[in-house]
Write a protein that binds this DNA or RNA. Sequence first.
DNA 1: GGATTAAAGTTACAAATGAAACTACTTTTT
DNA 2: AAAAAGTAGTTTCATTTGTAACTTTAATCC
Lengths: 162, 162
Amino acid sequence: MERVLNKVKAVSMNDVQRNLHLPRFLPYRLTKLSGVISRSLAGKYSALFDLTIHEWRIVAILGSEPGLTAREIGPLASLDKVSISRAVEKLHKAGRLEKRTLKDDRRSAALYLTAKGKAVLADITPLAQKYEDDLLAGFTPEEVEQLDHFLNRLDAAAEARK
Amino acid sequence: MERVLNKVKAVSMNDVQRNLHLPRFLPYRLTKLSGVISRSLAGKYSALFDLTIHEWRIVAILGSEPGLTAREIGPLASLDKVSISRAVEKLHKAGRLEKRTLKDDRRSAALYLTAKGKAVLADITPLAQKYEDDLLAGFTPEEVEQLDHFLNRLDAAAEARK
DNA sequence: GGATTAAAGTTACAAATGAAACTACTTTTT
DNA sequence: AAAAAGTAGTTTCATTTGTAACTTTAATCC
């Protein structure tokens, strides 16, 4: 398949090695883009609510699916168990979530947002939505759909050759 | 504009607060995707060549534009001066680049890849290209073009509201 | 049913990252 | 031309993140 993303000015046929052009290299672009967006979101909201991005993900997930255990949250939030343990601990100390040890497996606990936790979620959700909407403000619904599709396919391809 | 990416099943008109659905939240998806890709690339090549992603970026840039200073590389590689200083130092120690102090400003140095540095670049470039090609293997040239366009627009939007 | 293996979550240690202070040099100001 | 302010790059220190080892409980295996 033709390599369009890194296409450069025509090179002589004797060039053995075409240079890789960093600003057009997909992994670099994605890292850069996600970095700018994450820093922007974190700068605006995380500091404001004393909430890291990892905590934010957990709160968002527990908002839709209360009672999940740490292990179940892992794949949903793309977080390893250490990150989850730390974030859950901090949320717990802040009184934003409650742990209920499972009767049939005392190693794990079902996690629930407290009123405080729900309040944080309610506060941040519209801001996060607004941020996403702004990012996509220039996109038609069809384009958003297509972007969605592209991201799914890239994700699948990346997972496949992980 | 309609929020299509986070569209969920119809909710009752009395729902004051729609839940944010994390797996469809664009910032989350981009972070996750770039993370999978970066880890995959780093796992395959960085360890193999003892080269961090930051060093790799600098090598790639110096490959196309020899003689840049640390400061000039910064914006091109999206790296702050501390990261550059550390990466350049490591490349220098490894004999992969050469520093030539500028005559007219002895604080900075023009940076050049040595033969060793060029060899590393020549080794990695085709692997990186291959990885990108594989990611995009399912995309038609038109789709690649469109993805390119989307990423540019997202980047501009994100930078604008940074 | 007691020993072995495995799983959930935590803790401890090492490496990476970020922010601020610092050094050496250059430019601007008076 | 001396003093002040600014810039390039480095170093230091604090925080974050990742890996491995550990603790507790549960499941599996003779």
